[in-house]
């Protein structure tokens, strides 16, 4: 039982990073209709930026975190210019193909500039233990779910109670009516991309103390995030949050009780089953009377 709780905690830590990446992916898809294959690179670059600021420059962790946020926001802004502004009006599939291209460019740019050597973030926090009953986590891991809850909670409040958030939801639900209300598509697109990139970048930074960061790490994380988005229902933030935690926990349990080799397969198996049985996603629902 004690071990089970430890696996559960590990699953929640990893699942929290899936949530952070998937929330941005589902927002960009739900609001702009863009399938962003370059989303994993926000995660990868967030990890490298954080390691650079904290380890190479030796900045305090909180300052490094703010630096990662600013850097990721800039990345999101630039990605919007490339994936939405330039190509979207011509054909919706353009943005899918160009996001693939952007992913390859960013991966190779990272290989050229940083090199293939995997890096790990080492901080003083790894020495600080957090013990909850039989569960043990280093402080820097225990902070990952906390950061996830704070960020997703803040996003939830933003979407529900602010004009910016309401304009995002309006654009997701009825783009034409939203424009007629005076909402500017270009502004919504920039806010959406910047939010998505910041969430993924922060996830990359937080996880850089758990998994090694290398230039191709985005490939796996973006597939995990797509898994979460499909399980949670395309475009649903709460669905992505629930499904992300679920995937993290299921992977942790699979790896513990069935073998580590099955860890990365189980999510895709779930996607196939969910798409067959509930194409709307487990947490997706339609709120429209036909």
């Amino acid at each position: 039982m004690d071990l089970f709780l430890q696996y559960l905690a590990n699953g929640i830590v990893v699942g929290s990073s899936y949530v952070l990446v998937a929330v941005g992916l589902t927002l960009i898809f739900g609001i702009l209709g863009i399938v962003n294959f370059a989303h994993g690179e926000f995660y990868m670059l967030g990890g490298f930026a954080g390691i650079g600021l904290a380890t190479v420059l030796g900045l305090p962790l909180i300052v490094s975190l703010l630096g990662v946020v600013a850097f990721a926001a800039l990345l999101g802004f630039l990605a919007e210019q490339i994936l939405n502004r330039q190509v979207k009006d011509k054909d919706p599939t353009n943005s899918i193909v160009s996001s693939f291209g952007l992913a390859v460019v960013l991966q190779n740019a990272a290989l050229l500039v940083i090199g293939p050597q995997p890096m790990l973030l080492r901080t003083d926090l790894s020495m600080v233990p957090v013990e909850i009953g039989p569960v043990y986590l280093p402080l820097q891991r225990a902070l990952i779910p906390v950061a996830m809850i704070v960020l997703v909670g803040a996003l939830h409040l933003l979407l529900r109670y602010t004009w910016v958030g309401m304009s995002l939801r309006a654009m997701a639900q009825q783009p034409t009516v939203a424009r007629m209300c005076g909402i500017r598509v270009s502004r919504v697109a920039i806010v959406t991309f910047m939010t998505g990139a910041v969430f993924a970048g922060v996830a990359g930074f937080l996880m850089s103390s758990v998994f090694m960061v290398h230039p191709l790490i985005g490939n796996m994380i973006v597939l995990k995030a797509f898994t979460v988005v499909i399980l949670g229902g395309m475009g649903s933030v709460t669905g992505a949050a629930a499904a992300g935690l679920m995937l993290g926990i299921v992977e942790s349990m699979t790896s513990a009780y069935l073998g580590n080799g099955l860890r990365d397969i189980v999510g895709f198996l779930m996607v196939v089953i969910v798409l067959l049985a509930w194409p709307q996603g487990i947490f997706g629902r339609k709120l429209e009377r036909s």
């Binding site: 309401m166 939801r169 309006a170 639900q173 009825q174 034409t176 009516v177 939203a178 007629m180 709120l287 429209e288």
Partner: peptide, 10 residues
């Protein structure tokens, strides 16, 4: 608009 379009989830 035609079709009484609304922001359905709001």
């Amino acid at each position: 608009p035609q079709g009484k379009e609304a922001f359905g989830a709001m």
